[in-house]
Nucleic acid binder design. Sequence first.
DNA 1: TTGTAAGCGTTATCAA
DNA 2: TTGATAACGCTTACAA
Lengths: 342, 342
Amino acid sequence: MTRATIKDVSRVAGVSIKTVSRVLNKERYVSDDMRQKVEEAVARLNYHPSLAARTLAGRRSFQIGLIHDNPSPYYIFNMQAGVGQRCREANFRMIIQPCDINSPGLVDDIGALIDQAQLDGIIMTPPVTDVGTALAELFRRKIPVVRVQPGTDLTATSAVYIDNVQAADDMTAYLISLGHRRIGLVTGHANYFASGQRLTGYRQALQRAGIGFDAALVFPGQFDFQSGAAAAEALLALPEPPTSIFASSDEMAAGVLAAAHRMGVSVPGQLSVAGFDDTDLAQVVWPSLTTIRQPIRDLGYAAADLLLEFGETIERRQLPHELIVRGSTAPPRPMAPGSSPG
Amino acid sequence: MTRATIKDVSRVAGVSIKTVSRVLNKERYVSDDMRQKVEEAVARLNYHPSLAARTLAGRRSFQIGLIHDNPSPYYIFNMQAGVGQRCREANFRMIIQPCDINSPGLVDDIGALIDQAQLDGIIMTPPVTDVGTALAELFRRKIPVVRVQPGTDLTATSAVYIDNVQAADDMTAYLISLGHRRIGLVTGHANYFASGQRLTGYRQALQRAGIGFDAALVFPGQFDFQSGAAAAEALLALPEPPTSIFASSDEMAAGVLAAAHRMGVSVPGQLSVAGFDDTDLAQVVWPSLTTIRQPIRDLGYAAADLLLEFGETIERRQLPHELIVRGSTAPPRPMAPGSSPG
DNA sequence: TTGTAAGCGTTATCAA
DNA sequence: TTGATAACGCTTACAA
């Protein structure tokens, strides 16, 4: 017993091959009578069209590529889930392509993938989104592209994103609303555009509240646990330490927590910790953290949707972020030297 | 400018199409002269053969499927990394297929995937490995299959695995070697074969050490955080509580830690906690945990290797687990009621 | 060792 | 609204 082909279906249904093809592709100009016959035959033979043949003969391959260079399993997992979901709905397949943005072969690899698989479109996630040479290659090939949270050439391709400035503003404003006046900020890796955007949001909220910007409260990080911990140590050692620390990523927030713990600073009693849930991991692993959450899965779904619905047309879609408060981000007690709890 | 085809290459190289094909497929009986001409033309034209055409014309699709129903991002990520690595080396592509083992359409979905993509082979991870209907469908189609850590029909397909009995034995023996005599065990989800195997290893080590099996020290869990916490609460409330708790998964071990913390039991001062690092997450998120680690990425690599190297032949490959001790799994202090520290 | 010709299973084109 | 037929880019047989 070998695979059923379109020929088998046409024979069983008693119609021409072309008619079967029409039904398969939901083309117009097929009578209900024909359509029904074909559908019955397809079901009876358990027929599934060969993707290879469709790709070779037609203009589409029913495949899109997801290109990433992101070491966070949670990020990738959720992104795949979202893109995969939309692909399934459209009967498309998703090809995953991990890569290394520092590899000299990056552009060639992407080109080879597109050629070999005849991809119908590409989704890129940060930081691949902002590799100029890769983008140029895609333009050259005129292949539809959707970028997730791009940092440069914002209008060059379709894109999905959250507003990082607003998100950081929201979190900062929330902390201020609880009574915090000295809010430490651990910034993100300098290579990521999100880092600067988050700093901007932080400053914006402070200014609106009439709180002066204190450069001593801003400490550079690299998005990782270590730098979060280092930042917290520095910030908590200040003559006038912050009552709250806002880390620009969840891993750094975890680092802040660890350092505070090590230094005997009670959380949230003496210090409120907040962060960005960049990897979708914070809520799972550090459930008490107050975070700004990017809806990674939704971003993936929206990216695929844009690609499948609009193709070459450039569309942008902004998704809402969430401020997630779990446990208490308690209002700070005065921490003036010598003060003691009520 | 359109894609280069094999015809273009043959023209540029001044040889026949078939010769180009021979070089591409590394067939024998090609003179060095010809080979060189072809390789130059390929490089010059930046030619990448169409997978669709190769699949349609040939017997192979250069694609294998990875089927999973596993909610752990870390597990999936590492598995993909391992399988993907081996695929890249062989110039194969990996198709990811998430599924739901309780869905009635499972078998049909798998069949459709194989038909549409003409997959050359399938890798399955638990718990899909042990779905009889799915396995039967694959046998019917005579497609090469490699299962990761199968629980049933062990010799039915090629497989890669670690020895769970030995692993649990190792950990239990290690705890005993530190002086523990009362070791609690939180078992895994009853649906997973690994659960029973780990219980067996635990009992085996106890017996060898001449320690009687105490059913009161074994508490059923479901592999998740909650049940780990519940188990710890029950075990620590025993009249004679264990000095050590061995959880059959990392998430449960985390639950044990949390519960101990909540109950004011100091770790590792009064209680040693150990676990299985099933998701490859323990070392990242709970770095102090003593764990038995499955090398997930290596399992994936080995699975793909088996599939690509041996195809239909049934081969089994056992990989070593690792006992990872970080921080101290301190020997227990006596915990008799009323006793006080040194 | 190299080349020729006939498919592979679809879709595109054009005619009916 | 339906159908015949020529591609699509490669591999497989088979010849030379």
